[in-house]
Design a protein around this nucleic acid. Sequence first.
RNA 1: GGACGUUUAGCUCAGCUGGUUAGAGCGUUCGAUUCACAUUCGAAAGGUCGGAGGUUCGAUUCCUCCAACGUCCACCA
Length: 882
Amino acid sequence: MLDFSELPKAYEAGKVEDEIYARWEASGIFNPDKLPDRNQKGEPYCIIMPPPNVTGVLHLGHALENALMDTMVRFQRMRGKKVLIIPSTDHAAMPTQAKVEKLLMQEGMKNPRQELGREKLVAKIREFAEQSKSTILGQIKKLGTSCDWSRLAYTFDDERGKAVHEMFFRLHKDGLIYRGYRVVNWSVKGQSTCSDDEVVMIERTTKLYTFKYGKDFPITIASTRPETKLGDTAVAVHPDDERYQSLIGKVYTVDVGAAKPLNIKIIADEHVDRHFGTGALGVTPAHSAVDFEMYEKQKTQGDPIDLIPVIGSDGKMTEEAGKYQGLTVDEAREKMVAWLKEQGLLEKEEEIVQNVGTSDRFGDVIEVIPMTQWWLNVNTIIPRRGKSLKDLMRDAMTIGLNGDIKQKISVAPERFAKLYLNRIENLRDWCLSRQIWWGHRIPVWYKDEETRVSETSPGTGWEQDPDTLDTWFSSGLLTFSTLGWPGETLDLKTFHPTGWITMGYEILYLWMMRMILMSAYVLDEIPFKDVYIHGLLRDEQGKKFSKSAGNNIDPLDVIREHGCDALRWSVLIGSAPGNDSKFYEEKVGGARNLVNKFWNISRFILMQIGQGGDGGSETLADQWILSRLNETVSSITKKLETYQFSSAGEELRDFTWGDLADWYLEIAKVEKGKEKILLHILQTILKLWHPFMPFVTEAVWSAAKFEGQLIVSEWPKIATSLAAPRNDEIKKIEQLRTLVIDLRRLRQEQGIEAAKQVEFVLIADSSIKQMIESNSAWIKRLINAETLTFSDTLPDGWATMVSGTITAALNVAGAIDVVKEGARLKKELAETVVYLSALEKKLENKDFMAKAPEKVVVDLKQKYSEAKHKEQMLSEQLDALS
RNA sequence: GGACGUUUAGCUCAGCUGGUUAGAGCGUUCGAUUCACAUUCGAAAGGUCGGAGGUUCGAUUCCUCCAACGUCCACCA
């Protein structure tokens, strides 16, 4: 016989978590190939972990993400699926290099790239990344995530490198990847390009200048950046604008101080807003994305305009800028404005609010500069496909790839699908190349005028392209590069498309879109069937957690203090899918109490075992709890299937704490011999709780010496015989519950200390009387009554009340204040009458009776007769009083 | 400028396709506590569901408008 009273009174998370995790890991069940037979035969279910950046350590967002994934995966594993969750990390090219460069500069280096050179700097970054990576992986273990470490991936390891190259070659062969001279987003500080998605718009006030290029120029234009006007080659007006119509097509030569006089052509473009400024737009093809588009358009229309770069990659004015050469943009602007004033060309100078793009990694204002870069064309038709990448991305979310509904992604919450589609329509070509050194180097080689695409050098004299690929190129492949692609592996066949994925809405575009693009293009498959978008965790004031704001919380600190289960619970519960939620200390405290409560419920049940024989037939309470348990199993299963984590958890808590602990276990203290049922209940709730609180449940499971490991035990089945609507017996106990609650309130209202044993007298009809009598032992216990007797009349001077169809009287010491009692009864009677009339109105409404579901009508009638009875009792008592 | 979201108890939030007297956690007040759990138990107070219309027998839920707050997008130079 095991002595469970030796178990610690309070659950000690810190003492057991690491050991439990190690045990799971050692038993191999994180690896789908080593799962029990039941799972081997089950449906494959794969989740790709959103790879944390190797830039730093985990934050609360990761805790949330891991809690979501792991809850889902444990649920699916217990249901018998062949479950795989693949852990990975992201080399995060730009941020990682930026971070290491910053560190080196803090150590005294002025320009790490110059001082170290490519090889040495990359080595430094690798060293940092490796260290950071191992920290992060350790942290993920602490979060309890049951991922398969044997399949660990890194976006910058050799296997992923192969996938990256292969993808590059295929896209290139199909003509989707091209090298082109176009304007890019350029961070002067980072000395690299970035994609549109990495540009963060910020609002600021700036001056808008209204001026002419020269005295003889017919049109006045406005600009916040006069210095770029040194590169203007056109003025665009709206084609229908009668003010300028006669000028369209004309060319004017002006001299604003650039190296050469500028030829300005008046062109028509309907993007021009007639009502903003002067209704005319100075076109600077080299330094504005929109203007560049006009430039391209003019070119295809056979009416070309020039492109003159006046700002260089160092952020300074170029040779083309003439007398402004070498100045920074700000200096040039000042000088230009001064010149305009001097010449009397400046007409107006006003403050306006404007959005400017900044680099999300380096923080500086993005300059738009024309450069030769590698691009991915999202609009051109893919050979043999008849569709563009953009089309594929759209199909995956609407009709399914190739019109196959099985190849359609569903997004929860749905609204994000709309946002995604909206975004796709505005997608422009993706700039792939980055001028940093940390990342997959572009597999293209040059020799003299020749270009060759190849993984390794084609021979002597060939120079590899110095640029690297955008990190998202490699993370976009993750759903299949982690499964062995480009090899035709068993994993790939088994697990792709993956089953489910979760991510924050902030990387919806950056990551989700690219995974869909890559997978649809190369595998003709969606990367995942379901996406669950989660919100952001914010602090108590609603601010984002960040290091710079100083409100950063390390999930490991929380675990150390309250345990992993408590952390998981507190990030999962109390929020709706896709909505942000707040994280604060009290929430974790509450979660820790819950974990401990759970521990003690289990401990109590275990301590009952061996206390007394088989209890014989099921009592009313037994039937009730078993029915509730079954309802709970059914509901939790359904909720987890539909990703209602918070709601599922809350219901589980309410059942376990409310129904089980506060009612059934209290009853069990009186009705002995429930060993078998208690054991069944314990095993069932351990399973239900396991996905939410893996550690405490496994700790109980092993302390109880139950068979095997909980993590691979079978999810409880829904007993269909009990799943039917509750029978009359179950209704009866609900009635008794109501009675107990009412009697407790009666005590409380009478101000009698709960400790004191008191006498109750009840008036009830015979069938109810019998029911109360056969359950009187635990009823007495729960209301702390010495005697519970029945009578036909109410004793004088006792406090009375009505509960359902039962009238109860409590013996209070001394006389009751008749006036006070009368007032109370009157109030209650009035409330009942109001309630009754509301019910009556409903029941008399023919339309309602015709349309309302039968269940509702039956319930209503029941309520009505109960209330009617109560009304009668109350008025009788009131009469008796007076 | 566009799109989306939020607005429900003192605080943090649930509330599925409209249906009994709108819920939870925390907090508050009152009471209990040798009992598995003071990381506990019982009871109570607290909401005209942001505002105004509309549809319906019935609206927190659906529609329209308005307000406040928030997020994302956008080529207003």
